[in-house]
């Protein structure tokens, strides 16, 4: 049988024990932890995979309903939208406070504990088969992997796996796409992202630097690296 999860592996902001404290004590406890300078180094939540990766489905601010909050490390998080598909945004800082989603019956979205450094447009940005129109996105689930999460979905009926993990520097992320049956070239629309370097070893920028494109391929990846000057 598996080893029971130790309570101390859970992060403070998502810890039930802390949520049970009276609100004044909770506020005091948080400020005390912040004052002590501990908070930025907290591992958010044990994930069942490797420490530092956590995947929660919840109500996220400025996202479609029941989006994902994913912690890729101690100071990098992203929200993934299973409704429209794709990354809503990436943030630097602590994880999220899920307590507002749990506190009362008329609950509120989770509170982001960091600074958003990357956003994606509303329509799903990956195009397969050389078509320019937004594909029909159908979410099919996810897999927890060591140090990563892999989202599964259909794009116009074509099965896609998208693995997301922190980059080697810890200041960015790598999205690796696997497409079961690519009908043609792929392209990925990118909104201009100040101070975020976006690249793909398999793809090339168009002239306007608004999209990465590449010939038909079963696998390709997207690298998002935050500039060192970001806090």
């Amino acid at each position: 049988m598996p080893t029971p999860l130790a309570p101390e592996t859970r992060g403070f902001f998502c810890n039930w024990a802390s949520a049970r404290l009276p609100i004044r004590r909770r506020i005091f406890a948080r400020w005390a932890v912040l004052w002590a300078g501990i908070m930025p180094t907290l591992t958010p939540i044990a994930s069942g995979a490797e420490p530092g990766v956590a995947v929660y489905r919840t109500m996220m601010p400025e996202c479609g309903p029941s989006s994902f909050a994913v912690a890729l490390g101690p100071s990098l998080g992203l929200s993934y939208d299973p409704g429209r598909g794709g990354v809503n945004y990436v943030w630097q800082g602590e994880f999220v406070d899920l307590d507002p989603t749990w506190r009362t019956k008329i609950n509120k979205p989770a509170e982001l504990r960091g600074t958003i450094v990357y956003r994606e447009s509303v329509r799903y940005p990956l195009r397969l088969g050389g078509t320019g129109r937004p594909p029909r996105f159908e979410f099919r689930g996810y897999v927890l992997l060591p140090g990563a999460v892999e989202f599964h979905y259909l794009l116009d009926g074509v099965f896609v796996r998208e693995e997301i993990r922190a980059s080697a520097s810890g200041r960015g992320l790598v999205r690796r796409f696997q497409v079961d049956d690519p009908a043609g070239p792929w392209s990925y629309a990118i909104d201009p992202q100040p101070k975020v370097n976006v690249s793909s070893p398999e793809g090339a920028w168009n002239e306007a630097r608004t999209a990465l494109t590449a010939p038909r391929s079963r696998e390709f990846s997207l690298h998002l690296e935050l500039e060192a000057s970001r806090p």
């Binding site: 049988m1 598996p2 979205p109 927890l144």
Partner: peptide
Amino acid sequence: GDGVADRYETVNAEWGITDNW
């Protein structure tokens, strides 16, 4: 086989949702 779930597969999601509580 470690006793902890690793796959979360969508069986059906055809109903409408908002974030109303």
